[in-house]
Write a protein that binds this DNA or RNA. Structure first.
Lengths: 325, 325
DNA sequence: CTGTTAGCGCTTTCAG
DNA sequence: CTGAAAGCGCTAACAG
């Protein structure tokens, strides 16, 4: 016991937790030997005693058969989340789902480790194992997933607003025959982007020239665009509800021997890295990835701090105009 | 205490740790009530008692001023790493560097949490805080970073071999005036890719037509390629040591009004997602991202299991031929 | 095979 | 302001 070095006992504990309650003098003393001896409080012991671990769990199902593992900009979110959490002295524990199956496979891991709260990044699935967390009263913040409950909140981009931005841009550019390629259809980002898009179209007296659904990935955008190109009259602009699909669409247009944006204008959604890399540059509705990560950290910290469950955060999107529309 | 429910005491512990030592009968009994009561062993208590946490730390410095945060295919590695670790019941703790600065900022976090080992993903930096881990004897496995020590090993792609593959491909295609855009120069992946590349060129009696250095990122590839295009005679093929730079190079070529691969062939390195997305498809030397993650998990598990420090793992690369060369 | 008994290192009343 | 003492839940000898 490093504490032996000094003269005190649990005063050491006070020095590290409630320094203001210790006399200037003994504080210095203790801090002195602590530095000297290289003393570090042991988190496990502390967790055992307090029931708080200073760890927030990350629920991210990396099962390749499920959608969450391939979140389009996880890395950006993660960086922001981790940085913001670190600033509060919180660590991020990537939870390994408990081996024994059943709806408690995340919950068990959470409980065993006394994780204080979790952030869920699951790209749209309604996994019972995730819902179990909410039911158990674990403070949760979900990303890109409506998720509510007494101790649950979520962070999302303004998908509806983003859809409108896309529509307005296309309309301003003079397009009248406009189509969209939606995301997988029961999912809420897909639904909201579509709603925003069609609403803005309607305001301009326009109606959708087509709306095949994709699955967010490139291939589906490619296929959907081919369908759209077969229409007669052919749409002059299409809004792909995700950048990967937009890239697929771009490819289909090129293969058809048409030009972007002259023959067909394309706008995407997300603003992932490829958007800048691919010629002629993808015009797209950008999500604020850093903002999402930061907001998630804030929401969690607030809840851990005992605050009331914060309301959902809806982050504004921004239209980035590049060459494709 | 859930154990009260039964009749036993620390036998419960045995049931969960060394079941073979408990009679079939009592085992069933204990397991029975455990399930009933929803008993879960508490990891903190267990860690406190054993000094082992079943957590491996991930050292990933997300400081935007440092290189590691933007590892090109972190997500793929992470998925593989986490899955493999999960299968062993190990969790991944993303370490928040300890707030007080100094070379022990990761080490302190590791010690406080009794993390069993760490994987370092730091894209080439020689951070004293990382070296401190090695010195302290923490089992380490580094990715893409030569890292040795009594309890340290690393996983890397065969950069030299990859360089050769690129060169051979270009030579086979009949190119004779061949240049390269290297990575940032003192870093070892940059050096090794270059070495492999020039060696294979030499075997064919060729010598480099130019070798400007980039910094892995797009912009630098663009700039470097412009230099190369100004050469007279102009190279007919260039090997960019990273895909992002290759995309930059591609752009420079297009802007110069030249065609890929007819006027200038380009091959990259990494095989990141854009390689497939960008027309005409980037021919590139693929790294085995999943293999890297899995190998890292294996190395760590081996060390934790008490095995001798495994030798470095060098994973083969694979040339993927697409449209650009 | 199964109890008993100490701790693991820290926090937390409760006195002083 | 600072000790003393009792636990947090589990593992690890050490007897039976």
């Amino acid at each position: 016991m490093a504490r032996r070095s000094g003269v005190s006992v649990a005063t050491v504990s006070r020095v590290f937790n409630t320094p203001e309650v210790v006399s200037q003098q003994t504080r210095q003393l203790v801090l002195g030997i602590a530095a000297e001896v290289g003393y570090l409080p042991n988190e496990s012991a502390r967790t055992l005693a307090t029931k708080k671990s200073n760890m927030v769990g990350l629920v991210w199902d990396t099962d390749h058969r499920r959608p969450g593992w391939r979140h389009p900009f996880l890395q950006d979110i993660l960086v922001a989340l981790k940085s913001a959490l670190s600033a509060q002295g919180l660590h991020l524990l990537m939870l390994a789902p408990d081996p024994s199956p059943g709806p408690a496979r995340f919950l068990r891991a959470v409980q065993r480790h006394n994780v204080d709260g979790v952030v869920i990044i699951d790209n749209g699935s309604r996994d019972p194992a995730v819902l179990a967390l909410a039911d158990a009263g674990v403070p949760c913040v979900a990303l890109d997933l409506r998720f509510t409950g007494p101790a649950c909140t979520y962070i999302t981009s303004d998908n509806r607003g983003g859809g409108r931005q896309a529509a307005r841009h296309l309309i301003e550019r003079g397009h009248r025959r406009i189509a969209t390629i939606t995301g997988p259809m029961p999912t809420y980002p897909a639904v909201e982007r579509l709603e925003g898009f069609t609403a803005a179209l309607a305001e301009a007296g326009l109606t959708l020239a087509g709306a095949p659904a994709g699955d967010w990935y490139l291939e589906s955008g490619y296929t959907a665009m081919k369908q759209l190109l077969d229409l007669d009259p052919r749409p002059t602009a299409v809004f792909a509800a995700g950048d990967e699909m937009a890239v697929g669409a771009l490819r289909a247009v090129h293969e058809a021997g048409l030009r972007v944006p002259e023959d067909v204008a394309i706008v995407g959604f997300d603003d992932i890295e490829v958007a800048t890399l691919i010629p002629p540059g993808l015009t797209t509705v950008a999500q604020d990835k850093t903002g999402i990560g930061t907001a998630a950290a804030e929401a969690i910290t607030a809840m851990l701090g005992g605050a009331a469950t914060p309301p959902p955060t809806v982050l504004p999107t921004e239209l980035i105009v590049r060459g494709s529309a």
